[in-house]
C-alpha cells in the first residue's frame, strides 16, 4: 500500500530525513518511535504532502502511484489521512462544517454528488457516539480553545468520518488521559480492517497496549535504524533510546 524508498527530505535547506525505507501493507499496524527531533513528524508531513518540505531524493508510492506530483488534497482523496501532532485552530469554521466540506470535497474528486444531508447527519452522530463526543462540541470552532485531549479526539473523529486507507497518527496519545486513550484506541480499532493500514507515532508503550502493532520501527536522526515486532516497543520503554543513540553515534 505504502512504499517509501530512500526518502531524503529537507526543510529550509536543512536535511531532516536521510534515507527512509518503509513498507506498509493493507491490514497492518506499524508503530514508529524515536527520540524527540528525530524526524517522525517530518516523515508524516512529507507523506501527507506539505509543500514546504522538499523531497531531495527517493520516492513515496501509494497504491502503485508515485505521490511526488500530488498535492496534499489529492493525497487525501486517495485515502491518506494524517492525525496531527499539533492540530491547527481554525476560528470561524465549525467542526461540523469543516468535516462536511472535507467529505464533499473528496466525493467531488471521485465524481460523486454531495452526501445527502440526512446521511451526513447520521454519520456524524454515529461517529461522534463512537468517540463519545458531545454534540455541542461539533458546533464549536475547529480546535479553537479545545484542550489537548479534545483536539486529539477530534482528529480521530475526522478519521472516522473520512475512512482513510492509510491513517498516520502522530502522537495521538499525548494529552489523553487513560479513559480518553481507551476511547480513542477503541475508535481506531473499530475502523481497522484488512484493507486499511495504520501508522502510529508514539513515545509510549501505553498506546500500543490498545492498538497492537505488527511492526515497530525506531527513527533516529532521519533514518529508520531498527525495526522489529511489538517486543521492540517494550524494550524501548524499559531501556530508553541511549543504547540506540550509541549504536548510531
Amino acid at each position: 500500500m505504502l512504499t517509501v524508498k530512500d526518502l531524503h527530505a529537507s526543510v529550509e535547506e536543512k536535511e531532516i530525513l536521510k534515507g527512509i525505507n518503509l513498507q506498509v501493507n493493507p491490514g497492518e499496524v506499524h508503530a514508529i518511535m524515536g527520540p524527540n527531533g528525530s524526524g517522525k513528524s517530518t516523515l508524516s508531513t512529507v507523506i501527507a504532502g506539505h509543500e514546504d518540505y522538499e523531497v531531495e531524493n527517493g520516492s513515496i508510492n501509494f497504491d502503485g502511484e508515485d505521490l511526488a506530483e500530488l498535492d496534499a488534497e489529492e493525497r487525501a482523496h486517495k485515502g491518506i489521512f494524517l492525525s496531527f501532532q499539533y492540530p491547527v485552530e481554525i476560528p470561524g469554521v465549525t467542526v461540523t462544517n469543516f468535516i462536511k466540506t472535507a467529505i464533499n470535497a473528496s466525493r467531488k474528486a471521485q465524481g460523486l454528488e454531495d452526501m445527502p444531508a440526512n446521511e451526513m447527519l447520521k454519520k456524524i452522530r454515529e461517529k461522534a457516539a463512537l468517540l463519545e463526543i458531545d454534540s455541542k462540541f461539533l458546533s464549536r470552532s475547529l480546535n479553537e480553545g479545545f484542550s489537548g485531549g479534545e483536539k486529539k479526539r477530534n482528529e480521530i473523529f475526522q478519521m472516522a468520518m473520512l475512512e482513510p486507507k492509510l491513517a498516520i497518527l502522530d502522537e495521538t496519545d499525548s494529552g489523553l488521559d487513560i479513559d480518553a486513550l481507551k476511547i480513542v484506541a477503541n475508535g481506531v480499532n473499530k475502523l481497522k480492517s484488512k484493507d486499511n493500514a495504520v501508522v502510529v507515532i508514539t513515545h509510549y508503550q501505553r498506546l500500543l497496549d490498545y492498538i497492537v502493532p505488527d511492526f515497530v520501527h525506531v527513527l533516529y536522526n532521519g533514518r529508520i535504524v531498527k525495526s522489529g515486532t511489538k517486543e521492540l516497543a517494550h524494550e524501548l520503554e524499559a531501556k530508553g533510546y541511549d543504547w540506540i543513540k550509541q549504536e548510531h553515534a
Binding site: 496534499a72 482523496h77 489521512f81
Partner: peptide, 11 residues
C-alpha cells in the same frame, strides 16, 4: 491552517 484543511481533502 491551509495545510491542515488541504490534508483533509479540501482543495
Amino acid at each position: 491552517a491551509l495545510f491542515y484543511l488541504r490534508s483533509r481533502g479540501i482543495p
